[in-house]
Design a protein around this nucleic acid. Structure first.
Lengths: 201, 201
DNA sequence: TCTAGAATCTTGTCAATGTCTGGATCGAGG
DNA sequence: CCTCGATCCAGACATTGACAAGATTCTAGA
């Protein structure tokens, strides 16, 4: 009974399955993930996972939600405090996000796939909102301060979001090559904010 | 024998499979695509597709390559000619691309999934290069003319590419809401190029 | 402490799928 | 006409996700 894999009751099968799934997810794609294989690796029968995840999709959703939680934690950690200009803080946000994206490409893909799937679990959208609370607050305050053009309320956020998502995609596409990704991110954000600033004219 | 589905030799099974696959792809995701189901729909036995596609992945690759070809054609069509400023022409490019992306989200996803898969068919990368020949030429000429900052050769292209990909993602994520996507694209590109122009000091 | 009842896990089963194999059928060139 | 390659069929196999019924363990209440 020292080895939980031998006991009839695993003890923490749900967490073990998620851990094993995430490990495999980071090594291979999401489509190679098999419930039965996960069960084997954890040392449990093929029917056991059903007690914790009704579906395969339910497991993937749980994986995605955990991903949003961790992303949110990292964003909160690096964006804590008020120091720095808007551009600097936005760069920190972008770099944190892109680092997360390039560290766990498959997870990020799974996260948004689950999020955008029709009929997705509402808790996923909530997790997404929680994760991006800090950067959204940053943009809102910058708009309030007049640091960026006061256009359509969401237009700026959307442009930033689009650029950011594009950078994350770029980091995973191999196009960046051997360039330091942080530099690419910083340059792009700098260019973007230059366009966001009110024209001095 | 009037009905090709009744003849022993289908006549154009490869094309029929691709057409059926693309139809299903646009209606549902890529993960619900089944070789056997495609074979049934075309009226052929489950082993027949193997004569034209060694793998399921091979079929998906062919689908992706066809997607790149069509995207390239659309880009070439809308970007033909030399009229307009750099910003205008870039906007046309972005709008064409994003329209394609929102018209066929699943296809675009499949295209890049196939492209970035390790050990992908080199012909896919070639198809990708062909598709983006026009916009790449546009950026190159703009750089040569001094219309945009002459920084790291590829840095500008990467920033544009990232933003564009982000816009495409945005269009498919439902975040845009009921805003006209073309307007969002135009505004973002305008903001970006404002940051790309040489600073008037 | 004893004992229902819930929670958890096992085993068996089913339909569906991707892939492989051997054989049948068709079509074009000699 | 006949052969040979291209094309398609029919059968088989392992794997997978899902479901159901039963075994085992845990827990809460008497």
């Amino acid at each position: 009974m020292a080895d939980p894999r031998k006991r009839y009751h695993h003890g923490d099968l749900r967490a073990a399955l998620l851990a094993s799934a995430e490990s495999k997810l980071s090594r291979e794609g999401a489509h190679t993930l098999s419930l039965r294989e996960l069960a084997r690796e954890v040392g449990v029968s093929h029917g056991a996972p059903r007690e914790h995840f009704q579906n395969k999709q339910a497991l993937l959703d749980a994986l995605a939600e955990a991903g949003f939680d961790r992303l949110g934690q990292e964003l909160e950690a690096t964006m804590a405090g008020d120091e720095g200009s808007f551009t600097e803080r936005l760069t920190v946000f972008a770099q944190t996000y892109v680092r997360f994206a390039s560290r766990q490409p498959a997870l990020l893909e799974l996260m948004f796939a689950s999020l955008h799937r029709p009929g997705a679990d509402p808790s996923l959208r909530e997790a997404n909102d929680r994760a991006f609370a800090a950067p959204i607050a940053l943009i809102a305050s910058a708009r309030a301060n007049g640091e960026i053009v006061d256009d359509d309320p969401d237009r700026v956020a959307m442009a930033v979001l689009a650029t950011l998502q594009g950078l994350a995609w770029l980091a995973n596409s191999g196009i960046v090559g051997d360039r330091p990704i942080d530099t690419v991110v910083a340059v792009t954000i700098e260019m973007l904010t230059r366009g966001l600033k009110p024209t001095p004219s």
